[in-house]
């Protein structure tokens, strides 16, 4: 009886310690089910984490000493391509790849980690749910609620204007100096968004074919960067995944805000007008804006800046 009581007590200690956790525990039962069904696409998502971290770390370590950005970009792209062609099969920890970046941007890392878990688990539910109707929607909405409940690290689901991404004194430094990197990262985001739309197709055969086509299309986008991707603006969830946006209206703003925050980090990393000593402080300031529903609040959702390339938009185009 004493032992039982002790176990119970320790259990309480653990439960109490994770009530506000940004570590998602316990994991949803569907967790990483997407990878069982679509291992190639899942590995690519793991590779994106690796690729993001690698680019960020090298930009930070070489900050202020890159005399030839085009050459620098070419070399890292070659390394990233190797990772994409031979992607990891498990999720990588960013501090194993990018310790300097992790140290410099703590709040943003917390926000990205928490948000990426939501991205993953939504994919897992959409890929594995037997119920393709209200039951599946309930599951995704429950994940969304759990995500938003962790207030200190939940990016707001209020729509923001593009000025959140492009309206700062350091904005656009990344895309102006590293156009191929920028297209690569927007291609990552496009791939993630399109998977949501693919997974809402009515039959399993259609879903499997759509995921395979999106994966193939992703590599086409990278075939001759930056021209092969051709994004004129950051891909937006509601534009690239309209069915998904209609079914889960809270998620597109949260995902787009996350993607804009990625672009902000990229700009901070390469901007010559942000001193190295200011990076941590500016990262926290930008993170607070991502959490704040009132910062850069849009009067209407949808920016209309969809992808103007050759690869169409949304599952309906397949």
């Amino acid at each position: 009886m004493k032992h039982l009581k002790l176990v119970l007590l320790l259990g309480i200690m653990i439960v109490s310690s994770i009530a506000k956790a940004s570590v998602w525990y316990p994991l949803p039962v569907e967790a990483y089910g997407f990878g069982k069904k679509y291992p190639k696409a899942q590995s690519l998502l793991f590779a994106f984490d690796y690729g993001h971290a690698l680019v960020y770390e090298r930009l930070l370590l070489h900050r202020g000493r890159i005399s030839n950005p085009a050459d620098f970009e070419r070399k890292i792209l070659a390394d990233v391509m190797k990772i994409l062609q031979n992607p990891p099969t498990v999720k990588v920890e960013e501090d194993d790849i990018a310790p300097s970046y992790v140290d410099r941007f703590p709040l943003l890392l917390n926000l990205f980690d928490w948000s990426h878990l939501l991205h993953q688990f939504v994919l897992d539910v959409l890929a594995t749910s037997q119920d393709r109707g209200p039951g599946m929607i309930l599951l995704v909405n429950a994940l969304t609620d759990q995500y938003q409940a962790a207030k200190p690290v939940a990016i707001t689901d209020t729509c923001k204007t593009m000025d959140f991404m492009d309206g700062h004194y350091f904005s656009k430094a990344f895309r102006e100096n590293y156009p191929s990197f920028n297209q690569l990262i927007w291609a990552y985001h496009w791939f993630q968004i399109r998977l949501y739309e693919d997974l809402l197709l009515p039959t399993e055969i259609e879903r499997d074919a759509a995921v395979a086509a999106t994966t193939e299309e992703f590599f086409e986008l990278l075939s001759d960067l930056p021209d092969s991707a051709g994004f004129e603006m950051m891909p937006e969830t509601a534009v690239e995944a309209p069915t998904f946006a209609k079914n889960f209206p809270k998620l597109p703003p949260a995902f787009d805000n996350n993607h804009m925050l990625h672009d902000i980090v990229s700009d901070l990393l390469v901007s010559s007008v942000v001193p190295f000593e200011a990076l941590r402080r500016e990262g926290i300031r930008m993170g607070r804006m991502a959490l704040d529903p009132d910062a850069f609040r849009a009067t209407t959702c949808g920016h209309g800046g969809g992808h103007g390339g050759t690869h169409g938009g949304g599952a309906g185009g397949q």
Partner: peptide, 18 residues
């Protein structure tokens, strides 16, 4: 430092997630 959600000291998902 750096843990805005205040989850630690032990990662509750360990070793499955990290």
């Amino acid at each position: 430092a750096n843990d805005y959600s205040c989850v630690g000291p032990i990662n509750p998902g360990w070793p499955r997630t990290s």
